[in-house]
Design a protein around this nucleic acid. Structure first.
Lengths: 229, 229
DNA sequence: ACCTGAACACCGTTCAAGT
DNA sequence: ACCTGAACACCGTTCAAGT
């Protein structure tokens, strides 16, 4: 009972929206969004599931709150940036800083995509993007196109359907490889060439990062050409 | 009982994987993926939920099957294309044809994103993309970069987080508009300029389409410059 | 005002049984 | 071989009750 008393003695911090959202983010980070259930969230907080509903309307509101938290982190990461080396460099810096936040919360893009309306907190982020474009001499119209062209890349996320590097790991079965080479000669040729160039192609964070930057630079350069023409 | 007999007389088409997947696509098209439950799918097929498990392993397998069907439609749409007007035109045609299929199944990109490995049927599609790039003179390495740079745009889907046009519809509250103009001057400025240019900006399919093409052309042009340098 | 417990209407899925 | 019915372990959430 001495132990019980000591346990009780810990001042039980009261539940709050903020605390609910912060542990929700922690669960998603550690176990993925699919593991984020009201019951798990409650038990992680040492509380009954129904207690959560005093601080958030429902689970949808928690997902909205998750986005709020992540966009908050992005705005913070992006707040201290500076430099007068042109709009391309400035926007590139902003986007790569946002990307670093997203890499810490890999579930976030999927959650962003489930919201049907634009996530309100993102407006502040995009206002900053527009500020950079305008100071670089973009018309309102071209700035508008630019935002659409960047899409989710504007916050550092590019949806990749195809990880060519994945397929390389399935080389346990040489027979299947041969069949694939026949059916998909270009895929097979590309993979052979890539493996030849760089046998270490498995370290995929670096790869993803440089591929992201490649695509981003393509867009930024294209936009600059449109602007100056 | 006459009626009963007539009803029974309809040759009850037996369940099959193909029939399961086709009605699954129909449900997703009409009511969204979130409405696609085993129970709903079964009742739409006039069968008990458990009967489905004789033709598909589980719900995950159905989602994989959904992708298989959609990629099948894409490959069909893309199969008859031709023209010798250069790789840019050829790839543009292929991607826009794929996009038309996706616009008929708007839930599809979200399902693509839930699969952790690359959807196997997509390999055939990408092999065709690579064929176009190679015939246009791309090195394996640059073709590889190109595929990453295109990302989901390669099958006609660009993830948009921000629909600036949405925000315009919230103009019922002039006080909020004023507050927004103060807090987010660039967003407000852009929206004012866009509404001024084109009061009909609400017809958003056309807009989305032209914005998609704008971004796609930016990438294609950038890739051509990389190729020819 | 805040938290709880039991209950409800949904899920996907297992199991044993029917034809 | 194919389909069924009851049951189980999960969901999010409502409601009435506790402090």
């Amino acid at each position: 009972m001495w132990i019980d008393e000591e346990t009780d003695a810990q001042p039980r911090v009261p539940l709050s929206r903020r605390r609910v959202l912060r542990t929700a983010v922690a669960i998603a980070d550690e176990a993925g969004v699919e593991a984020l259930t009201m019951r798990r969230l409650a038990s992680e907080l040492g509380v009954e599931p129904m207690s959560l509903y005093h601080h958030v309307a429902n689970k949808e509101a928690i997902l909205d709150g998750l986005i709020e938290v992540i966009v908050g982190e992005i705005l913070e990461a992006v707040g201290g940036l500076s430099g007068d080396d042109g709009w391309q460099a400035a926007l590139r810096r902003r986007i790569l800083a946002a990307r670093e936040v997203l890499l810490r919360h890999r579930w976030a893009p999927a959650v962003f995509q489930t919201r049907k309306e634009i996530a309100a907190p993102l407006i502040a982020y995009y206002d900053g993007v527009l500020a950079i474009l305008r100071s670089g001499g973009f018309s309102w119209d071209l700035a508008h196109h630019a935002i659409h062209a960047l899409g989710s890349r504007a916050i550092g996320f590019a949806m990749e359907l195809f990880q060519p590097d994945d397929a390389g790991s399935g080389d346990d079965d040489p027979e299947m490889m041969a069949m694939m080479a026949q059916q998909f000669p270009n895929i097979a040729g590309m993979m052979a060439a890539i493996v030849h160039d760089d046998p270490d192609t498995t370290l995929s964070w670096c790869d993803d990062q440089s591929e992201f930057e490649f695509g981003l630079d393509l867009l930024l350069e294209g936009l600059e050409r449109r602007r100056s023409s």
